[in-house]
């Protein structure tokens, strides 16, 4: 039988990492609004504003619901994104990433989106439906370049499991230093802008046009759950980017340095994801919002062509 202590230890580690993820996520929310405010030359809310918002939403006295499918949304989105987080190699800890691989994560990112869409659809509000349509088209749009580059990397490193990919990049030869994947990193960063639903691509939750899209009927604790999902999604997506191109934050090998390596790796990982998120925020604070056709054309014309270039480059490189 599986020895229970190791299992217990593992579950504890997983639970700890998940709470840490949520905490970082909430920090990021405040961080994002602070950075945007600073760019807009105003002071902006305190860094811990994210925590306050979430507690306020959960402190709401009355909440409404549009039936059991609507409640399903909150459940599925939070559960889905934690599942995605568990299957990512985070800061050197391989949580469950040896069990699944990059395709599993790409599809796991879809569970919360689809559950959230189900709930929004159940609310019967036309704004929500239009918002979901835009979100799904946007997803289809940014998936093409992302998937092309990811496939190119998988074939180049001849593995599809992220854990092995991170190991391959350990010792500072990160994928971003390989010239072909440097351009790949740029392309995926543009796709990341779509995944994080930052300004040029926040077509789905446009407050002015469709009254914040799918979240129009979510209030109180439902909105709280969605805020948690949104923050955790930021952490997951930036970690994915870091794992793919920046070696997943693994700087010191654990075997040599023991527990200090864990701390250093964690800090490096945290710094890297903050840097990546900061980059996204810079673009977010400056750009107006695209129309959905423009976003689709942007991703499937310019981004996909660049990604095709990478595919051909890798094809030439790897074709034996």
């Amino acid at each position: 039988m599986v020895d229970l202590i190791a299992l217990g230890e593992q579950i504890l580690l997983l639970a700890g990492m998940v709470t840490l993820g949520f905490a970082i996520g909430m920090f990021f929310n405040g961080f994002a609004r602070k950075v945007t405010a600073r760019i807009h030359n105003r002071i902006g809310p305190p860094i811990y504003q994210g925590y306050i918002d979430v507690f306020k939403l959960f402190a709401k006295k009355t909440n409404i619901s549009h039936g059991w499918i609507f409640d399903l949304a909150a459940l599925f989105s939070v559960a889905g994104i934690t599942l995605a987080f568990l299957f990512l190699p985070v800061a050197g800890f391989t949580l469950l990433s040896t069990e699944g691989d990059i395709f599993l994560i790409l599809y796991l990112l879809a569970i919360p989106a689809l559950g959230f869409a189900l709930g929004a659809g159940a609310s019967g509000n036309p704004n929500a439906a239009v918002g979901i349509m835009r979100a799904l088209i946007l997803m289809l749009a940014y998936e093409l370049p992302l998937v092309m580059v990811v496939v190119a990397m998988m074939i180049h490193y001849n593995t599809t499991s992220l854990a092995t990919l991170v190991q391959m990049q350990s010792g500072m030869h990160w994928a971003i230093f390989v010239p072909v994947f440097f351009i790949g990193a740029i392309i995926v960063d543009m796709a990341l802008q779509g995944m994080l639903m930052e300004k040029p691509f926040d077509i789905a939750i446009a407050p002015h046009e469709i009254a914040s899209g799918p979240m129009v009927e979510f209030g109180g604790k439902h909105l709280g759950a969605l805020m948690l999902y949104k923050m955790m999604a930021i952490v997951v997506e930036t970690t994915l980017f870091v794992d793919l191109f920046l070696g997943g934050g693994v700087v010191l090998s654990v075997s040599q340095y023991g527990w200090i390596a864990y701390v250093v790796n964690f800090l490096v990982w945290f710094a890297l994801i903050t840097l990546v998120f900061f980059l996204a925020l810079l673009i977010n604070a400056v750009f107006p919002r695209f129309r959905i056709e423009q976003a689709l054309k942007f991703y499937w014309k310019y981004d996909a062509l660049a990604a095709l270039l990478i595919l051909i480059w890798v094809f030439a490189g790897v074709s034996i």
């Binding site: 579950i11 709401k60 109180g220």
Partner: peptide, 26 residues
Amino acid sequence: GALLVSLILYKWKPQEVVPHEDNYLA
């Protein structure tokens, strides 16, 4: 496990089901 976490989070506060017409349409 994740569903368990979100279920606890979810059951924290009561909620009342709203008739279907009660949608925000400006």
